[in-house]
Simulated scan of single mutants.
Amino acid sequence: MPFIAIDFEASCLPQYGRSFPIEVGIATDFGWSRSWLIKPHASWRDWQWSEEAETLHGISRERLAREGMDVAEVARHLRAAVGGYELIADSYFDDEWSRVLFRAAGEPDHVAVRCLADLRAFHDIDPERLHRAMAEADMQRARRHRAEDDARWLARLLGELGLERAMSTYAPPARSIWQGELISAP
């Protein structure tokens, strides 16, 4: 089944307390990508915010309040953009942040996210090949700890590992949500 790489940035790492998603990004190996900043939901008011996490991703609470989208809108856009494709992340945390987002949006089901470590084909890859693929993907990354860039990195890694065949049949929907408007996909 074809898949899309996904990454969430969060208010803090779970070891520091209850964290909530602040940005989500998706990408394919052939260059299609998208991200959304998430305005913190009222139910997350007492959840943790880490200065360390803010330093890593560079997204302040003020910026989220100013530029973030409502959780229901982000959930709707994300669901529309990924369609029925499987989502792959490089961390198990991403599935939980998807759950938190969709729960706050009042949706009964979230978009499920599998971890790269769960892909059987990933475990069959020679460690040398994995290190080379990671180095190649690292050279293409503009910045770390931003959801769209990290999703593009993961999509590139999957492509370098030869897993792109599963992604290559994905095309963005004929009409896609792009920058908050419904327009033709690029």
Score class of each variant (00 low, 15 high):
Pro127Leu: 06
Ala185Arg: 02
Leu101Met: 04
Phe20Trp: 07
Glu96Cys: 00
Trp32Ile: 02
Thr169Phe: 06
Ala75Tyr: 10
Cys115Arg: 05
Ala65Gly: 15
Ala174Gly: 14
Pro21Thr: 08
Met1Ser: 15
Ala89Gln: 05
Arg156Gly: 13
Ile177Gly: 02
Val111Gly: 02
Met1Thr: 15
Tyr170Gln: 11
Leu64Trp: 03
Thr55Ser: 15
Ala135Val: 06
Pro14Val: 03
Arg143Ala: 11
Ala89Asp: 13
Ser35Val: 04
His110Thr: 10
Ile38Asn: 07
Leu87Glu: 04
Ala5Gln: 12
Leu78Tyr: 08
Ser35Pro: 10
Phe3Cys: 15
Leu130Thr: 09
Glu54Asp: 05
Pro173Val: 08
Gly106Leu: 09
Val74Cys: 00
Phe8Asn: 05
Leu13Glu: 10
Ala137His: 05
His145Ser: 03
Arg45Tyr: 08
Gln15Thr: 05
Arg114Ile: 06
Ala185Thr: 08
Gly180Thr: 11
Ala27Gln: 01
Met69Asn: 03
Ile59Met: 00
Gly159Ser: 09
Ile4Gly: 13
Asp29Lys: 13
Glu164Pro: 06
Trp178Leu: 14
Leu163Ser: 12
Glu160Cys: 14
Tyr85Thr: 15
Trp44Ala: 01
Ala117Phe: 10
Ala147Ile: 00
Glu148Gly: 04
Glu181Asn: 00
Ala10Tyr: 01
Thr169Gly: 14
Gly180Tyr: 03
Leu119Ile: 13
Gly162Pro: 06
Asp70Thr: 03
Arg79Met: 10
Val111Ile: 11
Asp149Trp: 05
Leu154Gln: 00
Ser60Thr: 12
Ser43Cys: 03
Arg156Lys: 06
Asp118Thr: 10
Tyr92Trp: 02
Phe20His: 11
Leu119Thr: 12
Trp178Lys: 03
Trp47Lys: 02
Trp36Leu: 12
Ala42Trp: 08
Gly31Tyr: 11
Arg61Trp: 05
Phe8Val: 01
Met167Glu: 15
His57Ser: 00
Arg99Tyr: 13
Tyr92Ser: 12
Arg165Ile: 09
Leu56Thr: 00
His77Met: 01
Asp150Ser: 04
His123Arg: 11
Ala117Gln: 07
Gly84Ile: 11
His131Ser: 14
Ala53Ile: 00
Pro172Lys: 05
Ala53Val: 02
Arg144Cys: 01
Leu78Arg: 10
Ile22Asp: 04
Ala174Lys: 04
Arg99Pro: 03
Leu87Phe: 09
Asp109Ile: 08
Pro2Ile: 12
Leu37Ser: 09
Leu163Tyr: 10
Leu78Ile: 09
Asp70Ser: 04
Asp95Gln: 06
Asp94Cys: 09
Glu164Cys: 04
Tyr170Lys: 01
Ala5Asn: 05
Met69Thr: 06
Asp29Gly: 13
Asp138Gly: 01
Gly106Arg: 01
Trp97Gly: 05
Tyr16His: 09
His41Trp: 02
Asp150Phe: 02
Ala174Arg: 08
Glu9Tyr: 00
Ala166Ser: 15
Leu154Pro: 07
Asp70Gly: 07
Asp46Trp: 08
Leu101Gly: 04
Arg66Gly: 10
Ile88Phe: 02
Glu148Gln: 14
Thr28Ala: 14
Ala105Glu: 07
Trp153Arg: 13
Leu37Met: 12
Met69His: 15
Thr55Glu: 15
Ser33Ile: 01
Val111Lys: 14
